[in-house]
């Protein structure tokens, strides 16, 4: 039986893992991404994600280097997100050893990028990241870290991304991200039932029970950063809990 995936995400700035969402106290230096990646791998992570939050050119080079070093050591799928805005950017990280790229802002403003990426590298490489915010009647897509509205409904954009060749949707609730209150389950319900490609839940998880809820609301995979990063739970503890709740996981 196909198992549900647990994906630890590492926020990387200038080659180092950082995490400083408002809800949690940031650690001064969380150290080497490759080392952390290998710890997560040993704990049973099903995939890994690097979210590059670097703004500088120098930082961009560092992410290529660490993708390369990680892919040399760890034989599970690796996704790179953040700052990917062209087919050439995709090519660079894939060539360095990433298996997938997640595109967000660039895709929302230039949907042809999804099509171009899928045609060149295959749909399985292309994850479309959707940052959604609840407004009075519905969820809408925002870009630039949740600051800029696109006017698109999240569910419409998810369908369009699928039609354009996305292999997967990474669905983040802006309202829940960093709160630790759990994923936005209503958002998951509507998006997961609207598409036939896998949906990764993101934004708000702080306990393994949040993973369980997300899966029960249609997620195929769950992504978390702080929960693992601060050592509140290990990946293996989370998967054990999911298994106890009857969710198929790779133990």
């Amino acid at each position: 039986m196909l198992t549900k995936r647990v994906i630890p995400c590492m926020d990387v700035k200038d080659g180092k893992v950082v995490k400083n969402y408002q809800y949690f106290t940031p650690l001064p230096d969380a150290g080497d991404p490759v080392e952390l990646a290998s710890i997560y791998n040993a704990q049973g992570a099903d995939e890994l994600m690097f979210l590059d939050i670097t703004a500088s050119v120098e930082g961009r080079k560092l992410i290529i280097d660490l993708v390369n070093r990680t892919a040399n050591e760890i034989f599970i799928p690796l996704t790179v997100a953040g700052g990917i805005s062209s087919v050439e950017d995709m090519h660079r990280v894939l060539r360095a050893g990433a298996d997938k790229v997640a595109i967000n802002t660039a895709a929302a403003w230039n949907p042809d990028l999804i099509t171009a990426g899928a045609e060149r590298f295959g749909s399985q490489c292309i994850v479309v990241a959707i940052d959604a915010k609840k407004e009075t009647d519905d969820w809408y897509v925002y870009t630039h870290g949740g600051r800029k509205p696109t006017g698109k409904r999240a569910v419409d954009w998810a369908r369009e991304a699928q039609d354009r060749g996305a292999g997967e949707i990474l669905l983040t609730s802006i309202d829940r991200d960093g709160t630790g209150e759990g994923y936005d389950l209503d958002l998951l319900d509507i998006v997961a039932s609207a598409v036939s490609i896998p949906v990764i839940a993101s934004g708000g998880a702080s306990t393994p029970d949040h993973f369980v809820e997300a899966i029960q609301h249609g997620a195929d995979a769950v992504l978390a950063a702080s929960m693992f990063h601060y050592g509140h739970y290990t990946v293996s503890q989370a998967k054990k809990r999911m298994s106890e709740c009857g969710i198929p996981v790779r133990l």
Binding site: M1, L2, Q124, G167, P198
Partner: peptide
Amino acid sequence: RTKVPHMGWNS
């Protein structure tokens, strides 16, 4: 199948 591609760890 409910979801295509078949993506993830299977036995």
